[in-house]
C-alpha cells in the first residue's frame, strides 16, 4: 500500500467527511412510517410547512414539540388517505398562509412575486433614458466631437498661454 503524505491524507479525509454529511432532520425514528412511499410524501409535506414556534425552520427541521405533533398529524392524515394537498390545506385552514414556507401565488402576494421583475424593468428603463439623454460625442451626427465655440477657443488659448508663460 502506498503511503500518502500527511497533507494529502488530511485533505482526503476532510473530503470524505464532507460527502458523508447529510442535513440534520429532527424527524424521530419512532415517527417514521413503515411504508417508504408514504414516508417520502410526509417529508415532502413537512418541508413545505413552517414550524410556528421557531418560524424560520420547516417542521421537519425543528425540534419544537408543536413541530413534532404536526409531523405526527401529517403522517396520520397521509395514512388515513389524504393527498398531500389535503394535508397542507388542513394546516393552512388552521394557521393561515404564513405556515407555508413558499408563499402562495394569489392576489395578496402579487407584489411579492412580480416585485423583482417590475424593479428590473424599471431599472432598465431608467438606464435607457439616462444614456439616451446624455449628449454623446458627435451629437450632430458627424461622428466627430462638436466644434469649439469662439468663447471656448479664446479660453483655451489663454490657458495654453499661461501654461507656457
Amino acid at each position: 500500500m502506498r503511503i500518502l503524505n500527511p497533507l494529502k491524507s488530511i485533505l482526503l479525509s476532510l473530503l470524505v467527511v464532507l460527502f458523508m454529511a447529510s442535513p440534520a432532520l429532527a424527524v424521530d425514528p419512532k415517527e417514521i412510517l413503515k411504508d417508504p412511499a408514504l414516508e417520502a410524501r410526509a417529508r415532502e409535506v413537512g418541508r413545505e410547512l413552517r414550524c410556528l414556534v421557531c418560524q424560520n425552520q420547516s417542521i421537519d427541521d425543528s425540534d419544537a414539540d408543536l413541530a413534532r405533533d404536526l409531523r405526527v398529524l401529517v403522517r396520520d392524515r397521509i395514512v388515513a388517505g389524504d393527498s398531500n394537498e389535503d394535508v397542507i390545506a388542513y394546516v393552512v385552514s388552521r394557521y393561515g398562509d404564513f405556515v407555508l414556507l413558499n408563499p402562495p401565488f394569489k392576489l395578496k402576494t402579487y407584489v411579492l412575486w412580480f416585485g423583482p421583475a417590475v424593479f428590473i424593468i424599471f431599472g432598465i428603463f431608467v438606464l435607457v433614458m439616462f444614456y439616451r439623454r446624455s449628449p454623446a460625442p458627435g451629437a450632430d451626427g458627424s461622428g466627430k466631437p462638436a466644434a469649439l465655440s469662439d468663447a471656448e477657443k479664446q479660453k483655451l488659448a489663454r490657458l495654453l498661454d499661461e501654461d507656457q508663460g
Partner: peptide, 13 residues
C-alpha cells in the same frame, strides 16, 4: 397530550 385539539384551533403557544 398530542396537540390534536390545539392544532385544530390553530394554537401556536
Amino acid at each position: 397530550p398530542n396537540s390534536r385539539a390545539a392544532i385544530a384551533f390553530g394554537v401556536t403557544g
